[in-house]
Nucleic acid binder design. Structure first.
Lengths: 236, 236
DNA sequence: CAGTGGTCTAGACCACGGC
DNA sequence: CCGTGGTCTAGACCACTGG
C-alpha cells in the first residue's frame, strides 16, 4: 500500500474514532508531516484524495477541516461499493434473480464496445432495504475480463472479488440517469404500480487501462431511495 | 492564473480543436514538460485535474488518453455552470419568476446554517430548453455574502458574477436528490400532470472557506432531462 | 528491455486568514 | 505580522505496458 493511501485511510479512521463532524479541525500540515514522517507533498497528496472524496476541505491560511455531511439514509450515488457504506445502519439484502452466461443485448454490446457474439455474464438482482424492494439491477460483465462468477460471489460484493480476488484495477465509470414511468413488469419487482415514478440509472465501469468491462442498469424504487453527492468546484 | 490551470485549459482546447475522442492519445509527459517548459509535477497536477473532471485517463506504462463520453443531450449533474456547457447545442432560456430579499424558510435557514431573521435573496426561475420547460429552480443566497443581485445578473450566470464580479471563491457543494410525484402546482410550471414523475434536487453551495452561501431547490421535467456523471474510483 | 506514468523527497517561495 | 496551506522545481527511484 502506498504511503499516501495509508495516510488517507488513517486520517479517515482518526475522524471516525474521534467522532469529528463538519467544521472540526485536523492537525496542521507540519504536524502531519512529523506524525507520519513523510514529506509535505505526500501529506498534500493524501489530503487531496480526501478532498476529492468529500471527506475534508482545506482553507489556506487557516487549516484543514472535516467536511462530512450527513443526512441519514441517503445513498452515495458515486459509491460502487454497493450500499454497505452509505446505508450501513440499515439492513440491505440481495435476492439473486438470474445468473447466466449469455450473448449481450445490442444495448449491452454497444456500451461495452464488444460484438454481439462475445460472451458476457448476466446478473439480475433485487436489492431490498429492511425487507422493502430498493432496486432491480441487471449487469453484464465481459467474460474475457471476468472469467468466472458464481452464486456466492454474486451474493456478496462483486467488486471486492474483482479487485482482491482477480486483482483487477478498476479505473473510472460513466454514469447516466433519467426519471421515467415504470412499466408494469418493473413495477411488480419493486412493489409499486405501473406508471409510478422510477429512477433509471446506467453505469459503464472501466478498468484502469480504459477498457469497459461492466454495463449495469438499475431501476430504483422512488419511495426507498434518496441520493447524495459531495462535489468539488474545480476550474470555472 | 496558475501554471497548472493554464496547462489544463490548454489541453482541453487541444482536445477540442483536434476533435479528439475517447481513446485518442495525448503527447507523453516528457513532451508536455518540454512544450510547456515546466517541471514534471506541474504537468502531473494539470493532468490530475483533467482526470478528476473526467476529461482524460492515464495508464502507467502506456500513455495519456482522452476520456470524454458518447451520449448527446445529457446534462452534467455536477456542473453548476448552468446548462450552457452540457447543452450548448440546444437553446436554453430562463424566465425570472421572482427576485426578492426575504427571510429564509425554516428549511433554507437550516441548510444555510443561519437564523430565520437573517436576510437572503430569493430567486425563482423557470428554465426552458427549446421552448419546453426544463426545470423550476428556487435559490436562497445569504445576503451577508451576496450583497446585491438584480434582474440582469440573475438572468445571466449568477455564479460567473459571484466569482468574477464579487471575487468570491467557490469551494464545494453538497447535492441531494430523490424522485417523487409532482404536486399540482409544480406540474403546472413544467407543463406536466399532477403525479407525473419529477426529479427533486437540492444543492448547498459553499465558499472555499467552508461557509454555506446558497441553498437551491430544483425540480426537473422528466421528459426533458437526462444526466451524466463521470466518476473516478479512488480508494476501495 | 525500452518507454511511460507514479511515488516520494527536500526545499524555495507565494498567497491567504486572522489576530 | 505570523501561521498555514498552495505552487513549483529538480531529481531519484519505482512499477506497469507492450513489443
Amino acid at each position: 500500500m502506498l504511503k499516501y493511501q495509508k495516510i488517507a485511510m488513517d486520517l479517515e479512521d482518526y475522524i471516525e474514532d474521534n467522532s469529528l463532524v463538519r467544521g472540526d479541525k485536523l492537525p496542521i500540515l507540519d504536524d502531519l508531516m512529523k506524525e507520519f514522517e513523510v514529506s509535505k507533498s505526500t501529506i498534500t497528496k493524501a489530503l487531496e484524495i480526501l478532498e476529492v472524496k468529500g471527506t475534508i476541505y482545506q482553507v489556506r491560511g487557516s487549516g484543514i477541516f472535516v467536511r462530512g455531511h450527513r443526512r441519514k439514509g441517503y445513498i452515495n450515488l458515486l459509491s460502487n461499493q454497493g450500499f454497505r457504506q452509505s446505508l450501513r445502519e440499515f439492513k440491505v439484502t440481495s435476492d439473486l434473480l438470474e445468473l447466466a452466461v449469455i450473448n449481450p443485448t445490442k444495448e449491452a454490446a454497444h456500451n461495452l464496445s464488444i460484438e454481439m457474439d462475445e460472451e458476457v455474464y448476466y446478473v439480475k438482482r433485487l436489492r431490498k432495504i429492511q425487507g422493502q424492494p430498493l432496486c432491480v439491477e441487471e449487469s453484464y460483465f465481459k467474460k474475457s475480463v471476468v472469467a468466472y462468477l458464481n452464486e456466492q460471489i454474486v451474493s456478496e460484493s462483486i467488486f471486492k472479488y474483482l479487485s482482491e480476488g482477480l486483482n483487477l484495477k478498476i479505473g473510472f465509470s460513466d454514469l447516466f440517469f433519467h426519471v421515467g414511468k415504470l412499466k408494469k413488469e418493473e413495477a411488480e419487482y419493486l412493489d409499486l404500480k405501473e406508471n409510478d415514478p422510477g429512477l433509471y440509472k446506467e453505469t459503464i465501469f472501466h478498468l484502469a487501462n480504459g477498457e469497459a468491462f461492466d454495463f449495469s442498469k438499475i431501476i430504483y424504487n422512488y419511495e426507498q431511495s434518496q441520493f447524495y453527492i459531495q462535489a468539488n468546484n474545480y476550474l470555472p
